Measured scan of single mutants.
Amino acid sequence: MEVKRLKVTELRSELQRRGLDSRGLKVDLAQRLQEALDAE
Rank of each mutant, 00 (worst) to 15 (best):
L33P: 11
A36C: 12
M1L: 05
Q31G: 11
L15M: 04
D28Q: 10
Q34R: 06
R32I: 00
L15V: 02
S22M: 11
R17H: 07
E14Y: 01
K4Y: 10
K26Y: 10
K26Q: 13
K7W: 00
K7P: 11
E2F: 06
M1T: 02
L6K: 10
A39R: 13
Q16V: 11
T9H: 15
R32Q: 07
T9C: 11
L25H: 14
R32C: 03
A39P: 07
Q16G: 09
G24Y: 00
L33F: 01
M1V: 06
S13W: 12
R32E: 08
R32L: 00
R32G: 05
K7M: 11
A30S: 09
R17A: 14
L11H: 00
K7V: 07
V8K: 09
R18I: 01
R5F: 06
Q34M: 06
A39Y: 05
K4R: 09
L29M: 14
K7H: 11
E10W: 02
Q34K: 09
K26T: 09
Q31A: 13
R17L: 10
E40Q: 04
L15P: 06
L25Y: 12
E40A: 07
R32N: 04
R12M: 10
K26S: 09
Q31R: 14
Q31V: 13
E40D: 10
R5Y: 07
R17W: 02
L11D: 03
R18Q: 02
R32P: 04
R5P: 03
K7T: 15
L33R: 05
R5A: 13
V8D: 13
A39K: 12
T9S: 11
L6I: 01
L15R: 00
E40N: 07
L20Y: 03
G19Y: 00
S13E: 15
K26P: 13
S22G: 12
R32W: 00
E35I: 09
L37D: 07
L11K: 03
V27S: 14
L20C: 07
R12F: 02
E35A: 13
A36Y: 08
E2L: 06
L25V: 14
A36G: 05
D21L: 02
R17P: 04
D38G: 06
E40Y: 03
V27T: 11
M1Q: 03
T9N: 12
L25S: 15
D38R: 08
Q34C: 04
L15A: 03
S13C: 08
R12A: 08
L11C: 00
A30R: 13
S22C: 11
V3G: 06
R17M: 13
E10N: 01
G19E: 04
R5K: 15
V27K: 14
K26H: 13
R32D: 11
L25Q: 13
D21E: 09
A30E: 13
L33H: 03
R17K: 14
G19C: 05
S22E: 12
E10D: 06
G19V: 00
R23Q: 15
L6N: 07
Q16I: 15
S13A: 15
V3T: 10
E2C: 04
E14V: 00
L6H: 03
M1D: 00
R17F: 00
D21C: 11
D21W: 01
L15K: 01
L29R: 05
M1K: 10
M1W: 05
A30K: 11
L37H: 12
L20V: 05
R12L: 03
E14Q: 08
L11G: 03
K26I: 10
E14D: 01
G24R: 00
L33V: 04
V27A: 15
D38C: 09
V8W: 03
R17Q: 13
V27N: 14
K26D: 12
K4C: 09
S22H: 14
M1S: 02
L11N: 03
S22T: 15
L33K: 09
E10Q: 12
S13L: 14
L20D: 06
S22V: 14
Q16C: 06
E2M: 11
T9V: 09
L6Q: 08
L29A: 08
G19W: 00
L20H: 02
L20K: 04
L6R: 02
L20S: 03
A39H: 12
